[in-house]
């Protein structure tokens, strides 16, 4: 298989996943924005994480003076100039898919192409008419459909493995970043991690990850920060957790290149997620753990690029999206 083909499929999947995660991040920000604020708290603080996670805060600040809902959503959802906008990431997904349309099952290309065509027809007025929440739901649905056709129609050969690799590397990165930045904003007291906290604030985080119901079913308990951390990092059964993602990545790399450095790095991190305890993570600091994870994840991505002669993340088609 040509490296270019693998590269295109890998990035196609990453871009779809990235669009979905941006919709999730904007969704949680939007939900939090609708909650009553503490007196004196600055307006629009909820929107900051969306900009921080994508690395687009500096370029946003150059264009707007305040974090107003309309501005942030227009910038992060629709702006073609912003490489992290949902518009740009869906475009990236579609261009990569288009280059490989003869490798992909027809339904897959058609699904991505249809998403892109609809995205192009949107503007801010339509978004308002549609409702922001409806728009975020739509992005998620298109992403679900993409994964559904991937699993349901693609030959399970290398092409499939590279596509799935893209999905899980991107998802792991997004889960870690979202948790990191929200945790930082909500800043729970270290010794009160096991006490029930603000239902709405933390509930919104869980909802953004489609984890609200999962939390209830697993813990049957009020929302406690330590359990939220455990769910999003260490619980294998939750499909957006770091453990789950790395379990998939490891399986895929064991199939593609069992003796590569990327596989070793993944396995090492996987062991920590598989056998680690949440108390150890929180004792040494969640931020430290997540920073380490994010670095490790991007090392894995770079090793994949090296092993299979793809475009390295730092210079390649990811355009880095302003990320470190």
């Amino acid at each position: 298989m040509l490296s270019r083909t693998a590269d295109n499929l890998y990035w196609m999947a990453r871009y779809v996943e990235r669009a979905e995660n941006m919709a999730r991040i904007l969704d949680v920000a939007h939900r939090m924005h609708q909650l009553p604020r503490d007196r004196g708290a600055p307006d629009g603080l909820e929107w900051e994480p969306a900009l921080t996670i994508s690395g687009q805060k500096p370029s946003y600040e150059k264009r707007y003076d305040e974090f107003a809902t309309g501005h942030v959503i227009a910038f992060m959802a629709l702006d073609p100039e912003n490489p992290s906008s949902i518009y740009s990431t869906l475009h990236g997904a579609r261009e990569n898919a288009r280059a490989e349309r003869f490798v992909l099952p027809t339904e897959m290309f058609e699904s991505i192409n249809a998403t892109w065509l609809e995205m192009q027809s949107l503007n801010y007025a339509k978004l308002v008419e549609w409702g922001f929440r409806e728009f975020f739901e739509w992005v998620k649905e298109r992403s679900h459909q993409f994964r559904g056709t991937t699993v349901g129609t693609m030959l399970q050969t290398d092409a499939f493995h590279f596509t799935r690799l893209g999905t899980f590397i991107e998802r792991a990165d997004n889960t870690a970043r979202l948790l990191d930045v929200k945790y930082h904003v909500l800043m729970p007291d270290e010794d009160r991690l096991d006490e029930a906290v603000d239902y709405y604030q933390w509930g919104a985080v869980l909802r953004a990850m489609s984890a609200f119901k999962a939390y209830r079913m697993i813990y049957r308990d009020g929302i406690k920060p330590r359990q939220v951390i455990e769910l999003l990092t260490l619980r294998k059964e939750f499909p957006r957790s770091l453990h789950h993602c790395f379990n998939e990545v490891l399986d895929l790399l064991e199939t593609l290149a069992p003796n590569s450095e990327g596989t070793r790095l993944t396995g090492e991190m996987y062991s920590r997620l598989r056998y680690g305890k949440v108390q150890d993570i929180t004792r040494r600091g969640l931020h430290r753990f997540l920073t380490d994870f994010i670095n490790r994840n991007s090392m894995v991505s770079n090793e994949i690029a090296k092993t299979f002669y793809l475009t390295p993340e730092s210079q390649g088609q990811s355009q880095s999206q302003g990320r470190k």
Partner: peptide, 16 residues
């Protein structure tokens, strides 16, 4: 972009 020349021979970049 999938091809390159090395030592007078042509190669393609594959995942292998």
């Amino acid at each position: 972009q999938d091809l390159f020349v090395d030592g007078g021979y042509v190669y393609m970049r594959t995942v292998g």
